[in-house]
Design a protein around this nucleic acid. Sequence first.
DNA 1: ACCTGAACACCGTTCAAGT
DNA 2: ACCTGAACACCGTTCAAGT
Lengths: 239, 239
Amino acid sequence: MVSDALEQDEPAAVGAPGRRRRNSLNREVIVRTAMEAFRGHDLGTLTFQALGRHLSAHPTAIYRHFRDKDDLLLAMLDALHGEALEEMGPRREDWAEELRNLAASTYAVFRRYPAIAHHMATRTTRREHEFALVDRMIWALRRSGLPDLEVGRHFRAFADLVIGYAALDASLDALQPQERAGDLNAWDVDYRRFPEERHPDLAAVGPHLAGVGDPRNFGLAVDLHIEAVRARAAAGPAS
Amino acid sequence: MVSDALEQDEPAAVGAPGRRRRNSLNREVIVRTAMEAFRGHDLGTLTFQALGRHLSAHPTAIYRHFRDKDDLLLAMLDALHGEALEEMGPRREDWAEELRNLAASTYAVFRRYPAIAHHMATRTTRREHEFALVDRMIWALRRSGLPDLEVGRHFRAFADLVIGYAALDASLDALQPQERAGDLNAWDVDYRRFPEERHPDLAAVGPHLAGVGDPRNFGLAVDLHIEAVRARAAAGPAS
DNA sequence: ACCTGAACACCGTTCAAGT
DNA sequence: ACCTGAACACCGTTCAAGT
C-alpha cells in the first residue's frame, strides 16, 4: 500500500525533506503544485522558497522552467481560467443565466486563489482558456439583442465589473489576519451604529449595511447590470 | 529669489543630498511628500528607501512617525479620500448625478495613485474622509427612492463596483511598462482580428472591442448600474 | 525626543559548479 | 540537460548609538 502510493502519479512531498528526482520537474507539475499549495493563502506566502519546499526542490530550480515569477504567475492565471471554465459547465441557453454563470464561476475561483486574483486580475494571458471565456461572454451579450457595435463596449464593461469586483473581495481574503479582522470589524460594528449628529444618512442606514465580503453583494451588482442590459437591448438601436 | 524659495514652506528637497533639519519630520509632511513622489508611479517604487531620499532623511526615520508600512499606506489612503472629496465639490441635487460624481472622482484619484489603489482599495481607514464619502453615497441612494433596507445592500454593491473597477484600471497603470505594453497589445491587436474558425462570436465582435483602460468603459458600467437602481426604485417595494 | 547606522531575515534573480 | 549552492541587490523592520 505504502509503496503503491509512492509509485502512482507525482508524490505530493509537501514539506518533505530530501531531493527531487531528476527530470521530475516541469511546467505542469510546478503549476499544479503551486495551485494546491497556495489555494486560499495570502500574498506573502507565494514565494519561490515556499514553492521549492512544496516541490522538494531547490527554489532556483524553478528558473529552469519559468523565465521569472511573472511567467509562473501567468501560467497560474491560465490554470485558474481553466478551473473557471470547468465549473461553468455547458453553455446555458438563456443569455442572462449564462452571464450569471460566467460571473459566479469567476468570482468563485478568484476567492479560492486570492493571491493570484490580487496581482493577476488585470493581466492578459493570450491563451486558449482566456479566449474561450471571452468568446462565451460575447456570445451571451450578442444573444441579449444588443448590436455588435454595442457588444464590443458591453463586453469590456461587464468583464471588468466582474473581474474588478471579484478581485476586490478576493484581496480582502489575501489580507493579513489582523488587518482583515480590523477592517471587517469596522463595517460590522463601527459603521452599523454611527452617531446621528455627524452623518445622518449613514446613521440611518448603518444598521441595514450588508456585510463586506458577502457574495450576495456581488450577485446584486451583476443582477443590476444584466437588468440594465436587458432594458437597453429591448429599447432597440435607438439607445 | 533663490533664498526666498528656500525659506517658504517645506523645501521639496527631491533627491537632494544632505540631512533633514531636526523636528522637520512629521506625519503630515511625510504623507504629503509620499503622495507627490509616488503619484502616477507603480508598486515597486513605493519603498522606504525611495521615500527617505525624497525627504532627505534616513529611510528608518519614518518609523518614528509610522508604526509600519501599512500605517503609512492607510494615511496615504486617507489623503486620497480627501482629494476625492475635494474634487467632488458640493453635493449634486440629482441623486443619479451625485452617484456619477462620486464614481468619477473615485476613479480619477485611483488612476492618479495606482500604487495606493492596487494594494489599499480593499482597506478601511475608519477616518472622517471615509465617513463623509460613505454618507454622501448613502444620501444619493436614499434619494433614489429605495427603502433603507435596500439602501443597506445597494450601498455595498455600488461602492464595491466603483472601487473594484477603478482599482482594476489603476492596477493596469501600476504594471511594469513592458508587461503593460504586452497586455494592451493583446487587446488592441490580437483580440481585434481573431481567426473565425475557433471562436466565431469573438471573431465577429473583435473589431468593435472597446480599448482596455478607456474610462468610458467604467462610465458605461456605472450608468447601467444607476439605470437599474432607478428602475427598481420606480417599481416600488414589491421588487 | 528625534534621527542615523548597523544589522537581521527575507525576497527575486544570476551564474558557476556539480552530476 | 537539469538541479544545487553561493552570491548579489534589494526589501521591511529592529535596535543600539549618536546628538
